[in-house]
Write a protein that binds this DNA or RNA. Sequence first.
DNA 1: ATAACATTCAACCAAAAGGTTGAGTGTTAT
DNA 2: ATAACACTCAACCTTTTGGTTGAATGTTAT
Lengths: 119, 119
Amino acid sequence: MDRIFQALADPTRRAIIKRLTVAPQRVTDLAEPFDMSLNAVSKHLKTLEKAELIDRDNRGRTSICSLRTEPLQNVQEWLDQYAHFWGSNLDAFSRHMEQASHTDGIAKADNTKDGDDHE
Amino acid sequence: MDRIFQALADPTRRAIIKRLTVAPQRVTDLAEPFDMSLNAVSKHLKTLEKAELIDRDNRGRTSICSLRTEPLQNVQEWLDQYAHFWGSNLDAFSRHMEQASHTDGIAKADNTKDGDDHE
DNA sequence: ATAACATTCAACCAAAAGGTTGAGTGTTAT
DNA sequence: ATAACACTCAACCTTTTGGTTGAATGTTAT
């Protein structure tokens, strides 16, 4: 749990996660949008990997990263532990109804909220 | 968001949060179970305060800490952003049903999982 | 075979995190 | 008034974090 929350505590890493929800990607592609060295991104990916937030498929000289679901489920379970404490207004059921409106596979260009940079 | 996840990344702080779901408490009481100085706990509380995870009520010489709900809601919203990605098997609806079984106020000695130290 | 590419390793650095101790500031009790 | 209590501040230390650069490794293309 420490490693998961720690991994999520960095904006670069959250941005990487966000990108990975669209599609698995190579290290170079993931690094491209950031104003930092490739090495720095490589290290971030290692952090994400240790937290088991990403998986890697080494295809020859490239390493393709993809999102893993387990850690996010762990976070959800941790949160649910306290659901009774803060639940109510946007509770699990509301979320279910919200979620039911897009049961398709991948990112439905969800611009219903605040455009793009929801982090 | 950085500050929230950062705050949650420490086991001591998560334990403090857990304790605070039972009832608001003084700094000394919160510090008691931990094998570290009162000062160390005081610092942890400051971290939690900066992340707005706790509130304080200064009553004379004591400072009473209580949980705030907003940051946990923010985490939930962040997670929900990706719900479609990992949802399914333990989804929002299941959680709602689970939650529905204990709508009473506070911690129902939830020993259905792994005893006590769910962190 | 050689060059370009994709990625990681290693050493380094500054800043932040998590802890310590000791002193300081109020507040309550006697 | 004095002592005990509940805390916070400040200085310090060590380890971790997030970044850098430069070299090293392995892979594909020519």
